[in-house]
């Protein structure tokens, strides 16, 4: 886990404590505290997902996440930003990523949260292997979205 003023990012093998993340982000200057949970999704019948396995280049992924959180904080004037991502096996329905942002107003919070997830998917060196009834395969994210989002 890496921390800076008003920022906390990290990779973790254990389940993410959602309320602890929210409580860390809440602060007197925030009129909006927005939590986004990315959850592992099942497939259609015949392609049921047994579990996902996340692999990360931790020595690079945590600094990348901190740089993204730093940029989001500056760009939207956030009070707090937290990004936590699971590694290892994650069962279907569990939270694989948590983004919590605290801002004075909700519009900044929504924009910053969406931007953080877009950049995380495009830049954080994290990979996902999907184990289904059919076998295992590495799953890549769709191409990076336009930078003007938000």
């Amino acid at each position: 886990m890496l921390e800076a003023a008003g920022l906390r990012v990290g990779l973790q093998a254990e389940p993410i404590d959602l309320l602890a993340g929210r409580d860390w982000a809440a602060c007197p200057g925030a009129g909006a505290v927005l939590s986004f949970e990315g959850t592992t999704r099942d497939g259609p019948p015949g392609e049921r997902v047994l579990r996902l396995e996340y692999e990360a280049y931790a020595a690079m992924a945590e600094p990348v996440l901190l740089a993204l959180a730093t940029e989001a904080k500056a760009r939207w004037g956030l009070e707090r930003a937290l990004v936590l991502h699971r590694t290892g096996a994650v069962a279907v329905g569990e939270v694989s990523v948590l983004v919590v942002v605290a801002a004075a107003h909700r519009r900044e919070a929504y924009a910053a949260s969406a931007w953080l997830m877009d950049r995380l998917k495009a830049e954080a060196p994290i990979w996902k292997r999907e184990l289904t009834e059919q076998g295992a395969a590495w799953r890549a994210n769709a191409g990076a979205p336009p930078e003007e989002l938000g």
Binding site: G38, Y54, A56, Y57, A59, M60, A61, P63, H85, S96, V97, M117, L120, K121, A122, E123, A124, P125, I126, W127, K128, R129, W138, R139, A140, N141
Partner: peptide
């Protein structure tokens, strides 16, 4: 630990990583 272009010259002691298509999120 930082992204670079393919043309980046390597020096002894560098830690190099090849980053396949990402799947975080």
């Amino acid at each position: 630990h930082a992204y670079v272009e393919a043309e980046r010259l390597l020096v002894a002691g560098d830690e190099v990583a090849f980053i396949p298509p990402l799947g975080g999120g």
